[in-house]
Structures are given as structure tokens and as C-alpha cells.
Design a protein around this nucleic acid. Structure first.
Length: 596
RNA sequence: GCCCUUGUAGUUAAAUGGAUAGAACGGCCCCCUCCUAAGGGGCAGAUGUAGGUUCGAUUCCUGCCAGGGGCACCA
């Protein structure tokens, strides 16, 4: 409803500008900077003053007078202000009607059809099976899942996917590390054929009392160490990769066992976060297909062959990108080789309009190259391919500087460890209060910890590096997920207590203390739209903090359940605020709880 | 060397080219006889630097300073 009113106003202003002599006026209605300036403002007077040879403020006054004379009943006031803004004040009745529309739409409030009919495929959170997931992976997941939800909310048909890079040298290192270091008895030989017949002589993660992905990480680190230290081991590990490709049964068997460990652990973490994909691509199923695309490129003469036989791209002249090798001189494939095949597969399988890769910024050049080559091969249009990058998650070092996490330096922080730590501190508070029984405390602590962690990662622009300090980053006070959650809980608590009261909404002629809160709820739709345009949910998170703050201020001043004649109206505001908070949190992938 | 990217209070961090740069944490001071104080209110504190474009620049452009990433047969 608000959107229709805005559209109507834009048309009126456009017509007026055209009459004044502007050919193709661009008219925007911006959110007004403060409640004093109404709900929306337009800058057209300043923008077109020069062209119309007038002073900005005079032009603004003329426009304000024009709109005033139109007697548009959705507006209570139109005024020109220095240096040339025209401020539009929505009538109280419009804002109250908007509350009613929130109550009517409930869970679907905020949805729109802007991307109706578009098919999007979003790749995110492709986990490496050689290590447990850390905070960098967490950011990838939260950014990716957030985008998926935003696009769905805008009516797009979305498929989310991930690639399991389950073959190659890294997994071979895990396999070797397992064979060499997870034996129950040191006298057991590090021999794969022996292992096949005597598997029980090796530890399982359960026997080691380790989460399986952490167990795998341990294998990887040990395998990696041996690989660097000992040339014979390095040879053996390489041979494993070759044997795997030729289908050696023992190697395949070991491969399956360690992968099972890895993915079991990773899935546990991801399930905790509420992750889901519609499709998982397994590298071992498509990695050979890429070579065909390289051949096609050679036939089309868009690639070049180097003296040693390696195949190189030809991107300098047409794309102004540095070239990269597509096929090694020994004929084996690289990441980009496989990605050519996979991209075509995705595009065809889903008839996708847009493909998105949520991957770290270090892949920026590689993806540009991939997109360009895809275009050369006719797989798709470069403009339909998007790399959504995100800033690094670093740790604060002793002197307060930013330090990148590094598995080598042993400074990675695991997702589970962070959630558990936050959970423990929340749990402490519940134990002090003794308001809930044991199982409720446990369930609430888990939910709130995940909410706090997610919110802390999603509240800032995804491109910003994120400096992680557990005390600060997931503080449960102030601008935090807990703050929004607590605000929501308050709304639900009031609604429970006031459930017997009348819900009849009497429209006040003028808004009082509740004005700022009611006003803020007008903007939810455009916040969602902006987030969708930017493919970043942080606008929603910031908005939720604002609504929460306004709600809490109002709550402190006003007794809602006072039995007065305004009670129904006030309850409607509380309910609407609850819906806004709940739907907004849902975009962030956070389930609200009704009670803390 | 070339390309990309970031620089906002002590710290973490907002701001489709717009109005007085908005918050939180930390610091100092208030507020529970009242719907959950995991809350509310107040005070102090910020756009790396020099130019340019613009009616208007944290935002766009250029130089400089500082950080991070990438640059062909690794993943």
C-alpha cells in the first residue's frame, strides 16, 4: 500500500517536472533523514534547479505548493526546506493502515514479486573435506544462505548448491595421515593393503572421542607434515592420487572411509546452522568433463597451446584479463577446467538466468577468468554471472591489529567452538535465573547462541573485513542479535498478557510517543529491496536494530496494557513490531523464540 | 611491477551523492512499588592525507600514506 502511494507521488512529481521543462526527469523518494522531515523527501528541486534556471529552494517551494494544491489525502503535510528538499509527511491514517496491512500479511509481510520468473542458482559453502569448518566458512554460509532467502522473498526461483571437492592431493594427505598416525598400535604397518584387511587396528573418531571432522583435520595436518618432511611420503601421497584415478580398490575404500568421517562432522556443524542445499555436485563425478570444453575452445580457436603442450586462455585483448592455464602440460585438469563443465551443467540443468558464486575475495581474478571463458565458449553471458565475495574474518591480535586466520599458524577458530562458548555464557545466565527447567535452558541457550553468532556476522557489510573478538563480536548486549531477540520476546510477552483485550484499532488523529516506531515500520519493504539489490542482508540487520531500539524506548515510556481506549491500537503496534522483527530475523536465518 | 580491495570515535562498526556523520562496547552519571533491567535515559569522543568534480562528497575521480588479496600449469 505504501508502495502504491509512493508510485503515485512519483508520477505526480514527474508530470510536474515535465511541465516545467525537464525532458526525462529522474524522481526518487528517499527516506527522510529524521521524523521532523516526514517520511519521504525528494531532491528534484536541487537536481533540476540549474537546468530550469531557478534557485533550488524556490523550485522546491513551487513543487510543494503544487502537491499541496493537489490535496493528496495520503499526505498530511508537504513542505519545502533548505537547501531545496521537498518533504512529504504521510497522514497518520496511512501509517495506521500500514500497521493493519502488516497484521494482515503476517508471515508473508515483506515478500514481493520483483524477481518473479527469474531462475537463480547460488553456489555457497562448498566445504573442504580435509578440515573442520572455521569462521571463514561460517561467513560464506551466512552470506550465501542470506542471499538465497532474500531472492526467494523477492519471488525468484532459487536453487542453492555446493561442490564437494572430494578428490585430489588434499584428501590424499588426509588418507596418508590416517594410515600413518591413527593406528592403535605403533607396530601396525603404514600400509594400505594391510589396512584393508585389518581396519579395526585403526582408531575411529568415536574411539578417539573426537568430532569426525576434527579428527580428519588432525589426519590432514599430520599427513601434510610428513609430506613436507619426507620425499618418500610425498611420492606415496601422489601415487595415491594416481591410484585413485585408476580405480585402485584399496585406495577407493580408504577414500570413502575418510570422506565419510569428514562429511559426517561437517554436516553436523551445518545442520546446527540450519544450512541446506538443493543440490550437491561431487567433483569426482564431473572433473573429467572439463577437458572436452578445452577441446571445444581449441577448435573455436579461442585458446592457445603453449610449447610444452599446456593450454592457455586468450583473454588479454578482449577481456583485459591476464591469461591462465586451462589444462596442464601433462594433460590433467585444474579448478577452472572443472568449473567450465560444472557451469555449463548448472546452466543447462536449471535453465538458469543468473548464476552466483559466494566465494572468498581471493578467487576474484579466477572467477573473472572463468566467466570470460564461459562467454567465449558460448556457455553464457558474463553479465549473468556474479561473484559475491566477502571480507576476511580475522582475529584481533595482541596489539589490537587484524590478523588473518591461518591453519598453519594454528590460529583458526572453529564454528562449533564459538557457538559453544557463547552458549555457555548464555547458559550461565539461565542457571542464575532458574526460570526454566533443564531442557528449556539447554534448548534456549543453543538457539540464542546461534542467533547471537549469526547476527554478529550479518550486521555489517559483507565486503568489510570482520575483526573477530569473541567478547565483543558476540556480546549479548547492545547492538546484537540478543537485543533484537529480547525486543521480540517483549512483544510476545505483552501479546500473551493482552490476549483478552480488544484488537479494534481506533485511528488517532495524531501520533504520539509511538510515532517513531510506527514510522519505522513503513520502511521494511524498501530495506528488503535494498538488501536484495546489494545481495547483502546487513541492511535488514541494521534495520532490525533500529526498530528494536524504537520499540524499547516506547516500551519504557508507555504502559501498553493500561486498559484505556488506546489499548487496542497500542496492541496492534506491538503485534506489528513483532511481525517485522520476526520476518526480518527470518531473512537472517534466525528463528525467534517467544520467551527468554 | 601490474590488477583488485579496504581505511569513520579507544574498540566493533552504520550511512541508494543529501539535511545536525547514526549506533553499540568501553568510560562517567541517573532509572526496577509498573507489561521480562539480556532494558531505558544523559555526558565526552570519529570520516588516513592533499587536490578535483558537484548546488551538496564518508560516498565519485586523481595523487600520496597505510593495511589486505591476486598475478598462468596449487587448490
Amino acid at each position: 500500500m505504501i508502495q502504491e502511494i509512493l508510485q503515485e507521488l512519483i508520477e505526480e512529481i514527474t508530470v510536474w517536472l515535465q511541465a516545467a521543462g525537464v525532458d526525462n526527469p529522474v524522481v526518487q523518494l528517499d527516506r527522510a533523514a529524521s521524523p521532523d522531515f516526514g517520511e519521504y523527501s525528494t531532491n528534484v528541486a536541487m537536481r533540476y534547479a540549474k537546468q530550469l534556471d531557478k534557485k533550488p529552494f524556490e523550485l522546491a517551494e513551487e513543487l510543494a505548493a503544487f502537491l499541496h494544491n493537489k490535496q493528496i489525502n495520503s499526505l498530511s503535510k508537504v513542505e519545502a526546506m533548505n537547501p531545496g528538499f521537498v518533504n512529504l509527511h504521510l497522514a497518520a491514517v496511512v501509517k495506521v493502515r500500514h500497521l493493519e496491512s502488516i497484521l494482515g500479511a503476517e508471515d508473508s509481510f515483506g515478500s514481493n514479486q520483483a524477481l518473479k520468473g527469474e531462475k537463480w542458482v547460488i553456489e555457497h559453502t562448498s566445504p573442504n573435506p580435509n578440515k573442520a569448518m572455521h569462521l571463514g566458512h561460517l561467513r560464506n554460509n551466512l552470506v550465501g544462505m542470506g542471499i538465497v532467502r532474500l531472492l526467494k522473498m523477492s519471488g525468484a526461483d532459487v536453487t542453492s548448491d555446493a561442490v564437494y571437492n572430494n578428490r585430489g592431493i588434499a584428501i590424499a594427505k588426509v588418507m596418508y595421515g590416517y594410515l600413518a598416525h591413527m593406528k592403535k598400535d605403533d607396530s601396525t604397518p603404514t600400509d594400505i593393503d594391510y589396512w584393508v584387511e585389518h581396519k579395526t587396528e585403526w582408531f575411529t573418531p568415536i574411539e578417539k572421542e573426537m568430532k569426525p571432522d576434527v579428527f580428519v583435520t588432525e589426519c590432514y595436518i599430520l599427513g601434510e607434515q610428513d609430506n613436507t618432511a619426507n620425499q618418500d611420503v610425498e611420492k606415496e601421497i601422489r601415487q595415491m592420487v594416481v591410484d585413485w584415478e585408476t580405480g585402485n580398490q584399496a585406495v577407493l575404500n580408504l577414500w570413502e572411509v575418510v570422506l565419510e568421517f569428514a562429511y559426517e562432522g561437517i554436516d553436523r556443524t551445518l545442520n546446527r546452522l540450519g544450512n541446506s542445499w538443493d543440490k550437491i555436485w561431487y567433483e569426482h563425478e564431473h572433473y573429467q568433463q572439463g577437458k572436452k570444453y578445452v577441446e571445444t575452445g581449441l577448435e573455436k580457436e579461442v585458446f592457445q597451446t603453449l610449447d610444452d603442450g599446456a593450454i592457455l586462455t586468450n583473454l588479454e585483448s578482449d577481456y583485459d584479463l591476464s591469461d591462465t592455464v586451462l589444462l596442464k602440460n601433462d594433460g590433467t585438469s585444474l579448478y577452472i577446467t572443472q568449473d567450465l563443465a560444472l557451469t555449463d551443467l548448472k546452466k543447462k540443468t536449471y535453465n538458469a538466468d543468473k548464476l552466483v558464486w559466494v566465494i572468498g575475495p581471493d578467487q576474484s581474478l579466477a572467477l573473472k577468468q572463468l566467466f570470460a571463458v564461459c562467454e567465449q565458449l558460448g556457455i553464457g553471458n558474463r553479465d549473468d554471472f556474479t561473484h559475491v565475495a566477502y571480507g576476511y574474518v580475522g582475529l584481533k591480535d595482541e596489539d589490537g591489529g587484524f590478523k588473518k586466520m591461518s591453519s598453519r599458524a594454528g590460529t583458526v577458530v572453529l564454528i562449533d567452538d564459538v557457538i559453544d562458548e557463547v552458549k555457555a555464557s548464555i547458559r550461565e545466565r539461565f542457571d542464575e535465573d532458574e526460570r526454566h527447567d533443564e531442557s528449556t535452558r539447554e534448548a534456549l541457550s543453543e538457539k540464542l547462541a546461534i542467533a547471537a553468532v549469526k547476527f554478529s556476522f550479518l550486521r555489517s557489510d559483507r565486503n568489510q573485513d570482520l575483526s573477530f573478538d569473541i567478547k565483543q563480536s558476540v556480546d549479548v548486549h547492545g547492538d546484537s542479535g540478543m537485543y533484537v531477540m529480547y525486543s521480540f520476546v517483549r512483544t510476545q510477552s505483552i501479546l500473551r498478557k493482552g490476549s483478552g483485550s480488544s484488537t479494534v484499532v481506533s485511528v488517532p488523529s495524531e501520533l504520539g510517543e509511538e510515532a517513531s516506531l510506527v514510522r519505522s515500520m513503513v520502511y521494511f519493504d524498501e530495506v528488503v529491496k535494498k538488501s536484495t539489490d546489494d545481495l547483502s542482508v546487513h541492511h535488514v540487520a541494521q534495520y532490525l536494530l533500529e526498530v528494536s531500539s524504537l520499540f524499547n524506548s516506547w516500551y519504557a515510556k508507555e504502559t501498553i496494557l493500561d486498559g484505556g481506549e488506546q489499548e487496542g491500537y497500542k496492541l496492534a503496534i506491538v503485534k506489528a513490531a513483532g511481525i517485522v522483527l520476526k520476518n526480518g530475523m527470518a531473512i537472517l536465518g534466525i528463528d525467534t523464540v517467544d520467551e527468554i
